[in-house]
Design a protein around this nucleic acid. Sequence first.
DNA 1: TAGTTTTGTTTAAACGATTAAACATGTCGG
DNA 2: CCGACATGTTTAATCGTTTAAACAAAACTA
Lengths: 345, 345
Amino acid sequence: MGKGVSLKVIAAKAGVSAALVSYVLNNKKTDRINKITAQKILAIAKELNYSTNELAKSLKTNKTNTIGVIVADISNPFSASLVRIIENQGEQSGYTTVFGSSDEDLVKFEKLVHTLVNRKVDGLILSPPAGAEKIILRLQQQDIPLVLLDRYFPSLKTAYVIIDNYAASFEAVNHLSATGRNRVGMITYDADLLHLQDRKNGYLAAVKKTKKRLDNNHLKLVGIENNVSKIEEALKELLSGKAPADAILFGSNKIALICLRLINSLSLIVPDDLAVICFDYTEMLDLFYSPVTYIKQPLEAIGYQAVQCLLQNMGDTTNTPAIVLQAELVVQESTNASGKLLRKK
Amino acid sequence: MGKGVSLKVIAAKAGVSAALVSYVLNNKKTDRINKITAQKILAIAKELNYSTNELAKSLKTNKTNTIGVIVADISNPFSASLVRIIENQGEQSGYTTVFGSSDEDLVKFEKLVHTLVNRKVDGLILSPPAGAEKIILRLQQQDIPLVLLDRYFPSLKTAYVIIDNYAASFEAVNHLSATGRNRVGMITYDADLLHLQDRKNGYLAAVKKTKKRLDNNHLKLVGIENNVSKIEEALKELLSGKAPADAILFGSNKIALICLRLINSLSLIVPDDLAVICFDYTEMLDLFYSPVTYIKQPLEAIGYQAVQCLLQNMGDTTNTPAIVLQAELVVQESTNASGKLLRKK
DNA sequence: TAGTTTTGTTTAAACGATTAAACATGTCGG
DNA sequence: CCGACATGTTTAATCGTTTAAACAAAACTA
């Protein structure tokens, strides 16, 4: 391996001590240092193409200027976009971001957390899987700054940034009701995670509010592992029987993909026969023949707030801001009340 | 910040030297060490919840067990999937992966490379933007193991993993020709990057081979910044005039998205009036009313090979394997020769 | 019993930086 | 011409590990 150029090397070449080189390169004690010596040192540093060994620096300063981010799955477009925003946002404040995917797996999550902590990240932005309370708690006991993303645990006093999933679902169902849909169904996850519960509960509350009889068969819960046939089955059930749904809210973009693909191959027409709304935007929603109405999470704001909260929490770990952002319902053709089709006949 | 538990702390508590603790915890010199002492040390380490400071360890051992990956844009589903595969693949070999997005911007790319190098990653997997030759060369001079991903520079002797873009384009056009399309167009990038040139040249060669008159107007080049109106304009041009294209090959998933969205709003029918093929798979292709035929890059294989090549290059930087993988044309409805529509009428 | 091995543990330097404190000079006022 | 202050640079400890080498005591060996 090519010998690294260290302060010592520069010092030797310049005939000074390593300490002085450090001062010069970091612009410290600038009032004291001889300009000529400083110039010489800078010249040599440039000539040798010196660059700091951040490992050593971090070890000494106890600061890595790194934040660790754990999402469920970075290959999910939703996570990927968010991660990108956090990456940019962090950079603005001088932080490098490192990511990992937990796959909603507690063991994997814990392993990732460990790796990041042992590498001494300055703080963590986490989308923890269900059951991660103990892990989070231990991090707090170790005084490691962190903010939860997209999820939160009511039993824990942490900083978090979430969207109001309850309101988002509620608004979506309201929109469907208001535009004449009578049997609004939902396919979402059967999970402990509170943000998913909120999506479900928002739906239930809105359905109840319509005074229309609440038909349990219109809420379909599927596993978070996104099993294709299970989800397809749920959709088929919703669309059959004596009171088939005339509108469906999909609890995630994964669910939406699977269902829309299936709908493509069925004989029913969106939005005439069925209105659909999807949680989270993906490019694909625009490509469906009837562009899909969706619940738009304010990704920029989420990413921004996550980093800001973390910075605050880094200053003082007892400072745990809780940010709740509102999602926005973006109405497109798939919930068109008129039933007039824009798509090609 | 909560005092870190260091070897020294354990050593003190156990009444031994830090060195001995290190030996025990790393299972070195196991034959020599007293079992009882070892047990005691392990117990204390567990009790204090010790975990290695990887910073210090890396500084000493000159190994971080980290590989750095730079892609164009991690929020692009293609990159996101690949990155995920690399992440998993790296983990198999005991490496943590850290990512960054260059946005095809040379300055940003260089900055990212610097950051990763200063953090002493053990190796790099890079999708360099155009003009990155000097940067790559300097890395090689510093003996930093690296492998290029998806791209390569003929002027440089580096390890790389790419797909045969020329053959992929060629095959796609052939397929269109063979299924009766006569005026095959392409919209792709006007870029120096060789893999993009290859896509273009494969198209040109295949068109030439059909013996049909090569009409320059059927190849549209757009900027890599994916300007929406420029791309839409290119599409409109292809579809108008005296010899409108009856088939189009899209040079990337971004281009495809923009064009398919526009096609959705036009009166022409895919595949009857127009066949389309897209480079790179994305979920969205399945949601288009006429599922889109695409050129499938073997992501798993690419990710696997990238990591393997890097490991080889880490062992010996003069070892620069060049892997060329073949893409696969996945034929779906959008190039259906019969013109029979599966989509809803 | 003295010498050699084996067993068990410690010493100390090193990785590459940071930084308080000490140490030289030089300059100036009185 | 001497103490005080300013100027410029070095010393040395430290961060938390690793690891070769030294050391000490016990256990054989002859």
